[in-house]
Write a protein that binds this DNA or RNA. Structure first.
Length: 597
RNA sequence: GCCCUCUUAGUUAAAUGGAUAUAACACGACGCUACGAACGUCGAAUCAGUGGUUCGAUUCCGCUAGAGGGUGCCA
């Protein structure tokens, strides 16, 4: 039981005994005592005044007095205005530490076959260009949330839906065909996804030139865009692709193959993997049958030109096209199909889409359509809508070359880690492979932490200069503290000190020790909260708080050189638990922690 | 036009219907003969404006201003 819950129950009893009324849970507000006051947890008296019919000070004092008289584990209290600050005894905290030290998988709920089944779709890249910073946020969020949900006792399936077909792919293809001179990753040494991306940019450049030319010969902007030969060729290519024209299909397979090789490297560098990858080329026709069904049910309507629509105006939304007048399907048609397919095949309790907030309307519409079709599971679809990543100069624009490339970014972070460790001389004497591994861990840790510490819902600014800072509220700061703890534990082992004994209240000698035990004991609640809110940032902030608190402790108090054996053991155990909790918090974020750095 | 979101120190972030709003970076001043200084200590600096609900609002609601996003054949 958490300390907060324990105090809530005790306070409830006290109120009942003192005032003869059983208070509502919402009236018993327990919160952490603010740093500047003495106490562990605080009961806010204001909501109880109606019950006590006394002023805040008197009410607080009466409850505080009752609690220390009736509970041996509550040591003392003080009252400031309407706040009752409670301190628990050293026995209580020693016992908490012993319980944590002897438990396995502390803070985690393990999944069983009876657990809820959750599918998380994330990443979902287009195969016409390499991954960039925006994809990194998506990937890191999706991966971390999957781990958080797993450790909240869910069976999680990670899936990727690759957008491997459509006009955007044809743009890269047509540009390569016309201007590529048979360039391949092997011939040019370019990473496959970058090579294809270059031709996407090339298409845009040539297309714009054609549009300008047509405009100067008298066409309007819209006319020029519609008539540009390159665009017509791309559209023709898409038609040929849909007709499975062998030449076009072969080119498409070849170029997508290059992209997949490139993506695989990026995913591997980021430490991201999936249980299953879906391809839009295999799912884009799904959903059409369901649209027919909807027409029969009268949920959708035909228009004169053959297009199919759903009217959502009664729900405050607009009318939405589902099938184009030429009979082809649109994005949402496919999503209707894939969602149905997944719930048919897997019996999911929840399906989470990790997709940027610019698609909020899309998912609102999707959910509504599915519920109109009578699918009860539509209420189990959840759009995890995350904010955009902007640069200090503003929005990233691929065409203006202001996009931060994922591979470049990872590379820069790792090389910064190299420079840093060289400068500090921290890794002297280690083998090249060890140094490379550590710098990789630290560089990636910096990047991942920088992105995940921000609340997913919020837009964030990515400042390249600040992101490679390894001091302060950063991944490397937390990793460093872990490495330092591991170093202490290695030395303790050499000295033959035992960190597996249990401790007694006499072992606790300074306040910081209790602060640390308290913080460690809050880990399960943080994991649970992060699972509920689908927010890795809660874990990141917790890890930082814990690390900061430990560093202060470490600075002010000796561990191995402490002469009192009981105190030394306690500090050793606290150190071990802090190190473990840091490691496990970071694991939930998809960040590794090194033994040395 | 209509709909949605956001606005917290110079900057980037945090928290909360409750106490004097929390950190980091940057800036200034300090601490290594030390279990790891990628650390620690001190200083200065913030809730866009306005009205309401409330014992109490930065948090909830309204309006104003600014920023971003979406909106019938893109994804």
């Amino acid at each position: 039981m958490s300390t907060e819950l324990f105090l809530q129950i005790e306070a409830k009893k006290a109120v009942e005994k003192l005032y003869g009324v059983i208070p509502d849970d919402s009236q018993i507000q327990i919160q952490k005592t603010r740093k500047e006051f003495e106490g562990d947890y605080t009961l806010v008296a204001f909501p109880l005044l109606k019950v006590s019919k006394k002023n805040p000070e008197v009410t607080s004092n009466e409850i505080g007095q009752f609690l220390i008289e009736n509970n041996k584990l509550i040591a003392k209290y003080n009252v400031i205005k309407g706040f009752l600050n409670l301190s628990l005894t050293n026995e209580y905290w020693a016992n908490v530490l012993n319980n944590i030290a002897s438990s396995t998988e502390f803070g985690y709920k393990l999944a069983s076959s009876a657990s809820r089944s959750v599918m998380v779709e994330f990443s979902s890249p287009n195969t016409n260009k390499p991954l960039h910073l925006g994809h990194i946020r998506n990937n890191l969020l999706g991966f971390s949330i999957s781990r958080i949900l797993e450790k909240n006792g869910n069976n999680v399936k990670r899936v990727n839906l690759v957008n491997d077909r459509g006009i955007h792919i044809c743009k890269s293809m047509i540009a390569w065909q016309k201007f590529g001179n048979e360039e391949t990753p092997a011939s040019s040494g370019k990473k496959g996804d970058h090579l294809v991306g270059d031709y996407y940019v090339c298409f845009d450049k040539e297309f714009k030139a054609q549009v300008e030319q047509l405009k100067s010969s008298g066409q309007t902007e819209d006319e020029a865009k519609a008539n540009a030969p390159l665009m017509l060729e791309a559209q023709e290519m898409l038609r040929k692709w849909e007709a499975k024209d062998p030449e076009v299909y072969g080119l498409w397979e070849k170029m997508n193959g290059w992209v997949y090789e490139g993506f695989a490297k990026t995913y591997s560098a980021l430490g991201i993997s999936f249980d299953k990858t879906y391809y839009e080329s295999q799912t884009y026709l799904l959903g059409k049958a369901i649209v027919q069904e909807g027409l029969k049910k009268g949920v959708f309507t035909h228009r004169a030109d053959g297009s199919v629509w759903v009217d959502l105006t009664a729900d405050g939304l607009d009318e939405k096209l589902l099938i184009r007048s030429d009979g082809t399907s649109v994005y949402i048609t496919q999503d209707i199909g894939t969602a149905t397919q997944r719930f048919d095949e897997h019996h999911l309790d929840e399906h989470i889409y990790v997709v940027g907030n610019e698609q909020e309307y899309h998912f609102k519409v999707l959910k509504l359509i599915l519920s109109k079709l009578g699918y009860k599971w539509s209420e189990h679809l959840f759009h995890l809508s995350y904010g955009m990543v902007e640069l200090p100069e503003g929005k990233m624009k691929s065409r203006e070359g202001t996009v931060v490339d994922a591979d470049d970014l990872v590379g820069e972070m790792v090389s910064t880690a190299h420079e840093m460790s060289k400068e500090l001389g921290k890794l002297d004497g280690l083998s090249g492979a060890e140094v490379a591994s550590i710098c990789n861990t630290v560089g990636l840790g910096a990047l991942k932490y920088f992105i995940l510490k921000v609340d997913p819902k919020k837009n964030m600014t990515f400042n390249p200069r600040e992101s490679i800072d390894f001091n302060g509220n950063t991944g490397p700061f937390i990793q460093y503290t872990h490495a330092r703890i591991r170093s202490v534990l290695r030395k303790a082992l050499e000295m033959g000190l035992d960190a597996s004994k249990s401790v007694s209240s006499q072992s606790i000698t300074v306040l910081k020790e209790i602060e640390l035990i308290k913080l460690i004991s809050e880990f399960p609640a943080v994991v649970e909260q992060a699972g509920k809110e689908l927010s890795p940032s809660l874990i990141a902030n917790y890890a930082y708080d814990l690390t900061k608190e430990y560093n202060q402790f470490y600075h002010d108090h000796q561990i191995l050189k402490e002469e009192n054996a009981d105190a030394r053991t306690l500090r050793l155990i606290i150190s071990k638990m802090v190190g473990d909790t840091i490691r496990r918090s970071m694991w939930l974020l998809g960040i590794d922690v090194p033994e040395k750095m």
